[in-house]
Design a protein around this nucleic acid. Structure first.
Lengths: 247, 247
DNA sequence: GGCGCATAGTGGTCTTTACCAGTAGCCGCG
DNA sequence: CGCGGCTACTGGTAAAGACCACTATGCGCC
């Protein structure tokens, strides 16, 4: 590589390419195409691996979307999930933006086994229902959800029951399961190969990993879920309260 | 490249290299070194760009840490932040795990200007205090926090006041600002160049972006913060409540 | 024994080249 | 006019090579 007038950090070719692309993106709308890789290489005087590295970064951020054989396009915008307190003291979880559906990918039942039995507080021989569903909003995959429930709670539940409407409402109305509270963890992660394919994002794209242990009014564990939300299309809001001792 | 017995998706050299490295990582502890890039290339029969792409992925996940001129090492483990309801109805924010300190990087005051005035609900000419601090836990940078407060609320506040202890307690005790509630958004992001350097992670590493609008008991906006938490070392837990209408 | 320098390690950046695989558009034929 | 095939586009994967820059270790000299 020939000498660069800029210092090694600020002036890397990859960085200058990325800045150029950010300016390009700023002028366009979701779905618009950007010039082809080979055109950009000629225009910017860089090699394809270097250009691709810059584009890789923007793809991981959700700003660009690549389609094999078609081109590279401006990415769509984010969906927001709000966690807000209701007038009462409960911490209400309203629906996220957009029109949500689910597609059930897997649906089976098997004995809990030692580890799952412990987490669900059932006997290891008790059957546990296991469902995997793809959460879809406005026709695009948004999340993959893996759910475990004690089978005894939901006798007769069918896959299509989990594809529209509120699952918690269904639990209440049909099975008398009064879903009341949950502990949930959120952490950033990156998609693996299967998740990437299902969600339509690249492998190792930023994502949010949610794990939730849900209880009914009596404190009984009714559900374990583990969900991956694509990071380029999802954001959480929450409303916090502090008392006199809060940090 | 010679023909591959495995199909294009499952059998990419990059993927096989990554799987090999995951096995290697599984046998070691944080801080342990893995073999050098050139050694791994010889051992696995792949080119350096291909090996580096596989290592890049593991570095972004926080599983590996690279040090220029020294080697590649196993990454450290995650810190957990808990959001839990207290016995009262408020949504308490307890301290996250570990011993937290701050280092104030920037600390100045300037007129709010139109946009910030709108968000803070002050006049554009009102001075606003702006602080940037690096949040450190157990001697490692964990987050970068950018804070704006109306200067009138905190006359006499000095940078060192923000480096240890609870800032909200300080607001209460010294300035009579009764911090009571906040709206916060959380979304996954990737670090930019400056953030990466301050946090000691690679650029474009997964991170969590928090934006918070904090109010006092009277509903007055007392603080705006925008924070980046490194994604390889941070996780959030929360406790959720559902009423009879919750989804 | 300590310090400084040089060398050999390490990771980091980029180019060039080759080839694979998917998609779209155009042209020709039925 | 529609369909199929071919070509030229697009992105995708990988290797080889060159050189930069940081760090650690060892050796020699003071």
């Amino acid at each position: 590589m020939s000498t660069s007038a800029l210092n090694a950090r600020a002036g890397l070719k990859r960085d200058r390419v990325r800045d150029f692309l950010l300016d390009l993106i700023g002028d366009k709308r979701p779905g618009d195409a950007i010039p082809s890789e080979r055109d950009l290489c000629r225009e910017l005087g860089v090699s394809r691996p270097t250009l691709r590295a810059a584009i890789d970064d923007l793809v991981r951020q959700g700003l660009l979307v690549r389609e094999h054989g078609r081109g590279t396009f401006i990415g769509p915008h984010k969906v927001t999930q709000q966690l807000a307190a209701t007038a009462g003291s409960s911490f209400y979880v309203p629906p996220a933006e957009g029109h949500w559906l689910s597609r059930v990918l897997e649906f089976d039942s098997a004995p809990a086994g030692a580890r799952l039995a412990h987490r669900l507080q059932v006997s290891p021989a008790d059957p546990v229902l296991r469902a995997v569903r793809l959460r879809i909003v406005d026709d695009e995959p948004m999340a993959i959800e893996r759910i475990h429930l004690p089978h005894a709670l939901v006798r007769g539940l069918a896959p299509e029951d989990m594809e529209s409407g509120s699952f918690y409402q269904l639990l209440r109305a049909r099975f008398g399961v009064d879903v009341r509270s949950a502990v949930q963890t959120i952490e950033p992660t990156v998609t693996d190969e299967t998740e990437a394919e299902l969600l339509g994002v690249p492998q190792y794209a930023p994502a949010l990993l949610f794990e939730r242990t849900t209880r009914d009014a009596g404190g009984r564990i009714v559900e374990l879920t583990r969900s991956i939300y694509r990071g380029d299309r999802y954001r959480i809001t929450s409303e916090l309260y502090f008392d006199a001792d809060s940090g």
